[in-house]
């Protein structure tokens, strides 16, 4: 009797999660990942056919419309800056002292030879804005309980129409994502690790991207320092700041 009761409770909890809480889970994921603005330093490790290299950068991002990134190392990349305002992207390279506007078509090319395109990097709309979520099940992952969420695009202009997302049940942080093509083919996978608590949020600081259609070891993205809701001066998001 007692076991039945517990089972019923668990079942009830699960069902309620299905219907109502998938959206809630996603909202809480957004609460962890999205912010008014953020300032972070990161390392990106790209595994090439011959060698791997690591690029470090410092970024300022505000909502999903404005971001500014400055590359810190290696020497060849140092001082290169990228400014994104809405759908436009400018790149400044100190060696040429030029500000190049990257046309829409180029945004689909890979960033620095990684498995990420500029668009991938720039699209940081809140998940709840673009996806419907459904809980598909629960599982364990690296010793943590996770919900498996299926996300389906609400709007047409989304790069990946469907995602599977493994969300930590306690911390509301995705630990794994699979990005699918409209036709259902798996295109990219992301592993998210090293979750730390920053300013009351749980945040994965390591992400491993992999283009599933291509051979290769993927791209590792590690955040070494992140701060949310900072006062970012407005000039950062201006073309003038590129040349500074």
């Amino acid at each position: 009797m007692k076991t039945t009761f517990v089972t019923l409770i668990a079942l009830f909890a699960f069902i309620s999660l299905h219907s109502q809480d998938a959206a809630e889970i996603l909202r809480r994921v957004d609460a962890n990942l999205s912010s008014e603005n953020r300032v972070f330093e990161s390392e990106m490790t790209i595994h090439g056919k011959r060698s791997s290299r690591t690029i470090t950068s410092k970024s300022y991002a505000e909502g999903n419309s404005r971001s500014f990134t400055e590359y810190l190392s290696p020497a060849s990349e140092k001082g290169t800056k990228m400014l994104k305002l809405e759908k436009q992207l400018w790149i400044y390279s100190p060696s040429t002292d030029r500000t190049i506007q990257i046309s829409g078509h180029m945004l689909r090319q890979s960033v620095m030879g990684s498995d990420l395109s500029y668009e991938d990097m720039m699209d940081d709309r809140r998940l709840t804005e673009i996806y419907h979520a459904v809980v598909k099940g629960q599982a364990g992952m690296d010793g943590r309980g996770v919900w498996i969420l299926e996300l389906t695009a609400k709007t047409a202009d989304v790069a990946y129409q469907r995602q599977l997302m493994w969300v930590d049940r306690e911390r509301y942080v995705p630990l794994k994502q699979e990005l699918y093509a409209k036709g259902g083919k798996l295109l990219k996978s992301m592993e998210l690790k090293d979750v730390v608590q920053v300013q009351g949020r749980w945040f994965p600081t390591t992400m491993i991207y992999k283009d599933m259609l291509k051979q290769g070891k993927g791209t590792e993205f590690r955040i070494t320092n992140i701060k949310f809701d900072q006062k970012i001066p407005d000039y950062i998001f201006s073309k003038a700041s590129l040349k500074q």
Binding site: I46, R53, I55, S76, T80, T96, I100
Partner: peptide, 16 residues
Amino acid sequence: VTLIGSTMNGSMAMYN
């Protein structure tokens, strides 16, 4: 003019 290409290891390269 500026050339925008990719370096041997895939980084973006710009050169005048």
